[in-house]
Design a protein around this nucleic acid. Structure first.
Lengths: 342, 342
DNA sequence: AAATCAATTTAAACCCTTTTAGCAAATTAT
DNA sequence: ATAATTTGCTAAAAGGGTTTAAATTGATTT
């Protein structure tokens, strides 16, 4: 923690030039034909005094900041904070840092953040794009800035992305609900949003509904609706349609749903939420979810980005990760439900 | 997004020197007695072309990175991610960026992170110190690095910190539980940890127990215990002592407790958790919590740190934020509980 | 008219690396 | 024995700003 030691100090102490030390430190000893003896001597000394290059100077010179920008919808959503946690870890293991931000589905904020990151010369971006960010992202791509989209992609824009198999996730979930003979009326709660993940989840729901030749009950909530109003609307939706089951397109919509149920003492025998949450595993009755391995997602994201930065991606990576339906509490719950109704 | 414009470009275009532009941009026009006319001309032009100084070059020269390091216990814990979200926002509004990390209560990792941040020349630190970090933090202080501790502090070390009134929080919570005449046996679940927040919560619990002249039931869990074992131990603790109520010292311990209750179909009529969680508000019966305004905490933290950086703190800031007992569901629940038991 | 002074502006040093271009000595080829 | 390479290393420029120390200009004094 004492006074910072510089590369010139090393050079002086060893009686060699700064250039030589730099070459050796950057693994160019062979290439620059520096003798093995000297290489070892420098390396040993550097290790002994614990010299570390000044990142800022290094970045200024190389144009590489070794910082990655992560722009997620909302870091306080456990889905995103879990992914962030893994990304952070892998990035660090690869010598990168993460600067992260929540954009709260606000295009203006997202644009500002990207500009800010750009000014900071981050080496790459992982972005969950809100609607309206198409042009900004297109611009980044055009300028050869490494970008990976996440959770949703931008149609008609050729980018790397890592998303979930939303269609099959929603399809399987809806099918699961419909297969229960007591569920005649199965609804779907989503957002007013044309983002791909929402579109695909809707399509998955519709496919299942059509397969079972049932009526569709679809409710969309405004993306920036305040919680109280959202709860109010969900109450109305569930109660007036006398729904037996609902598929919620996001975890917080499902939470609003639960709050509505609690507040208005409604019955909603079955539901499936999108993206898991501690709450869902402990709630009685247990709440089934469409889930996915956040570690896998983080892995794909960060590796895609790092490869892009290193120019190792021969072609665009369009990765779809299968999602899984985690059925909860059916046995326990049906017992308990029976007990309670009896 | 096009090619970056430099300060030298500005100077050339305007036919003045780089120095002059720099002075004006850094608000030293008056001090350096640069004429108002020129000042305005430069400022207008800079705005017109949208010039922004290269942060790296700036940092390299001034030694200020405008980056703050935030080291929390676990970013996926909603308490921390909420505080982080606010901190992030305020920092940005003040022209600072946040680099954050979870240290997972691992001293080695925390030390590495601090070293890493130090190498990156962050301008200040917000740290939730794990046990064993005393010396490292002391070292930072000794080197005049701006530091604010958070959630817990280090006894005998003179630092800025922002913590909660853990003693009163735990005391009030325990008192609340004891005041219910049906609660004879009130336990406390905490961690094997000498961190101040845990120590104070224990003392608050003990004070209430002593005031009511009751027996104490205290269970500590290893700080890095795996979830399954933690659940197992909590089951044993609650069941064998036939506890009527439990105060949990952290939100995840309370979650483990709930899992134990669910898994082993136990009864635990009342509980209070430390740090709120969506789960606790929706669980049936609603779970009371000791909570606090994360916005206030974040505000105090970031402003203390920024003032420290600017040298505006005349003295050390030792801030204790009052915590609040949020009693949940007592009325509704007792009704429902009655219904179920009847 | 020369000297002094204040008001402006600027050249150059500095922050710390990386990297280009090149030099001197040792080898090899002719 | 000399020219052509190769080997081993380095001086200096570059990267993009900030800041010190000094130069320039015009006005005022002597």
């Amino acid at each position: 923690m004492k006074k910072r030691i510089l590369i010139s100090d090393i050079a002086k102490s060893l009686g060699v030039s700064v250039t030589t030390v730099s070459f050796i430190l950057n693994g160019k000893a062979k290439e620059k034909r520096i003798s093995e003896g000297l290489t070892k001597r420098v390396l040993d000394y550097v290790k002994k005094v614990g010299y570390k290059p000044n990142q800022l100077a290094q970045s200024l010179r190389t144009g590489q900041s070794k910082i990655l920008g992560l722009i997620v919808e909302d870091i306080s959503n456990p889905f995103f904070s879990n992914v962030a946690k893994y990304i952070e870890r892998i990035a660090y293991d690869n010598g990168y840092h993460i600067i992260y931000c929540s954009m709260d589905n606000d295009v203006t904020k997202a644009k500002e953040l990207i500009q800010l990151f750009y000014d900071r010369q981050v080496d790459g971006y992982i972005i969950t794009p809100p609607e309206g960010l198409e042009e900004t992202v297109a611009n980044l791509i055009k300028n050869n800035v490494p970008v990976v989209l996440f959770d949703r992609y931008i149609p008609n824009l050729e980018t790397n992305y890592v998303v979930l198999d939303n269609f099959n996730g929603a399809f399987t979930a809806t099918k699961h609900l419909l297969e229960n003979p007591s569920n005649k009326r199965v609804g779907f709660v989503s957002l007013f949003s044309n983002q791909t993940q929402m579109r695909d989840r809707l399509e998955g729901y519709m496919k299942a509904i059509d397969d079972f030749q049932q009526q569709a009950y679809i409710k969309k909530i405004k993306i920036d609706e305040d919680e109280a109003s959202s709860i109010e609307q969900l109450h109305e939706f569930i109660a007036s349609n006398k729904l037996d089951a609902v598929l919620f397109a996001t975890n917080y919509l499902a939470i609003h749903g639960l709050k509505a149920i609690k507040e208005y003492k409604m019955k909603l025998p079955h539901m499936v939420a999108y993206d898991d949450h501690t709450l869902f595993s402990l709630y009685e009755p247990g709440i089934s979810v469409v889930t996915q391995d956040t570690a896998t997602i983080a892995n794909e994201l960060i590796h895609t980005l790092l490869n892009e930065i290193k120019g190792k991606n021969k072609e665009l990576q369009k990765i779809t990760i299968p999602s899984e339906l985690l059925v909860r509490g059916s046995s326990v719950i049906s017992e308990e439900a029976l007990e309670q109704t009896s």
